[in-house]
Amino acid sequence: MAKIIVMSSGKGGVGKTTSSAAFGTGLALKGYKTCIIDFDVGLRNLDIIMGCERRVVFDFINVIHGDARLNQALIKDKRVENLFILPTSQTRDKEALTREGVGHVLEDLRRDFDYVICDSPAGIERGALMALYFADHAIIVTNPEVSSVRDSDRMLGVIQAKSHRAENNLEPVREHLLITRYDPARVERGEMLKLADVQELLAIPLLGVIPESPAVLRASNIGVPVVLDEQSNAGLAYSDAVARFLGESVEHRFLKASRKGLLDRLIRRIA
């Protein structure tokens, strides 16, 4: 029986799709059969980030409305074993999602997979509510910035009130904090919220801190999940986060600004 994870935030543009792609790929690399579903109907970009946008024939909405079978819509990733993507429609919008339809698809996926990641759209309306409804785990993606923290807090309240588990008085959805675009140099200059502040304001367990990295933009432009870029700090941080989620005890890295030596500083000034 698969665990269903929703990658949510409330705020837009904080790194939900990037994190869904990286986290899902990370789980598959560890040997777990993983499916990532794009819930952002009408504004799909999971397929672009995963590099499979030219292989989309049928999508999530087709499956919900019975126009295609699930295995016709699932796209198998070419690079990583055990990894599948369920893209969504670009021509429809979120009204096309129905709770019953989403429920059926997730039931089918639960049987065959170990993990299902629901890449949520921004907001607290229909698309986001559908993505979070069946979740067992919620990863709240937050930038160390005041409006992102406020929206994440709101999202936590929505998940506590409107998930299937909440409505049926089951064990509550497990919440995890994933901080993205963390820049230790700016934190030290006092320009950015520090980790401890965000933790105090949100009060949920910390899953990982992903540093700001040019590798993220490069990765999305070439359609490769950043976790596969082992040279980048962001990629390594995502790997750490996956390990932590699976129960390993991993120290948080990339929290301190790197100190450049005298030579580095001299060279910089010349160049």
Binding site: D153, R154, G157, V158, Q160, A161, A203
Partner: peptide, 8 residues
């Protein structure tokens, strides 16, 4: 006994 989240 639980934190009261924004919007509640």
């Amino acid at each position: 006994t639980e934190p009261v989240r924004s919007g509640r």
